[in-house]
Design a protein around this nucleic acid. Structure first.
Lengths: 198, 198
DNA sequence: AAGTTTATTGACTCGTCAATCAACAAAAAA
DNA sequence: TTTTTTGTTGATTGACGAGTCAATAAACTT
């Protein structure tokens, strides 16, 4: 009994189901049928709304990044000082949500996807640019000319710490990761604003 | 015309072919037949020597890590000072070899594999421990009690910088990554050996 | 010489899966 | 009311793939 305006609802359900299934299997080795089943429809319908499985992956990727982006934006909106802003980004990056099985599966597998699907690589690049630019807003008042380099380094450190927590045996420790990031900041900000020699 | 003692030769060929194919496709979505073909044998023979495809993946993973380990060990063997040691590890980690398509494909996909295959997770953990311990040897004379934290952070930073170079559009810049790692060191060593307050 | 171990493959089994299609149903437009 | 658009699925296509097996053959053992 077809109700109209199903498209966005179905697509949304499929995107979420895609992420769930990637998290469940830990890989991109999920079938359209599995996804469709979890989203409560036939695989044919999934193919109807998304032309191909790859399109579903890309939509799922955008969704994960949107969620993360919203989390960061929410945290930033209550930040007062520049330091607050950086702290907000760090905390959001290591929030429990990002360590859920689905999120982990999504990120790792999207990195893999980025190797071969240009569209996916572009999305990853967008994420990296946005992270850096968010960090810069907080860093420039604190570090001036060195802000660029510090933002680059802190961005990489956040990714690296995340990766390590995820690959570590046992439960990930977001707080420890955040502490390391703060340490990095302290060393780069507190120490040598005067060091100019290369 | 069976010559004896083929096993190690065949296995070696399969391992290398596995890495090649993973690099070529950028994913673990490679068939045993593709691997076997590239290694110059039938897929049945591949199954004869390795029981399953997963076994081939794990063997390939060990091989990649062995290569990297050898590279690091070689660089360390000529290091004189503690600082030399750290520098050697950094340079080796961002060597062109590690940015070859095969190496990139291997690392990214092995991270994914580690999510679901405990054996793979263990191998990743071994790599992380070894990196940290190598860094520690160089860091302890320079940083004393803070060596632990710095090694942890530098290890994560190296992974994060690697990831960023790999995902960046365009050719990766190992030298830039190494420079960032040095920057991290400088900030953590040169600055506040006296800072004790939390 | 007979028996055993090692090397090797073509053919096959059993299964999966992405994508398509024909067909049906209901709402909206004409 | 007829037509068009939107929603929906069962069935099918066409292809591929991991792992097994029987069979063949060379080399080594006894």
């Amino acid at each position: 009994m077809p109700k109209l305006g199903m498209e966005p609802i179905r697509k949304d359900a499929l995107v979420k189901a895609t992420i769930s299934e990637i998290g469940r299997t830990g890989s991109l080795d999920v079938t359209v049928s599995q996804i469709a089943k979890r989203a409560g429809m036939s695989s044919a319908l999934a193919h109807h709304y998304f032309g191909s499985k790859e399109d579903m992956f890309l939509a799922a990727m955008r969704h994960v990044m949107t969620i993360y982006g919203a989390e960061v934006r929410g945290a930033l909106s209550v930040a007062q000082t520049p330091m607050d802003r950086i702290e907000a980004i760090v905390v959001a990056s290591f929030s429990p949500a990002n360590f859920r099985r689905e999120a982990v599966g999504a990120w790792l597998n999207f990195w893999v996807l980025a190797q071969t699907v240009p569209q996916a690589k572009r999305l990853v690049a967008v994420y990296q640019r946005r992270l850096k630019s968010n960090l810069l807003v907080g860093l420039r008042p604190l570090a001036g000319a060195r802000a660029e380099t510090i933002a680059e380094g802190l961005g990489a450190l956040i990714d690296g710490l995340y990766l390590r927590q995820v690959l570590r045996p046992g439960a990930p420790d977001g707080a420890a990761a955040a502490a390391m990031a703060r340490d990095y900041l302290a060393a780069h900000l507190g120490a040598e604003p005067l060091q100019t020699m290369k």
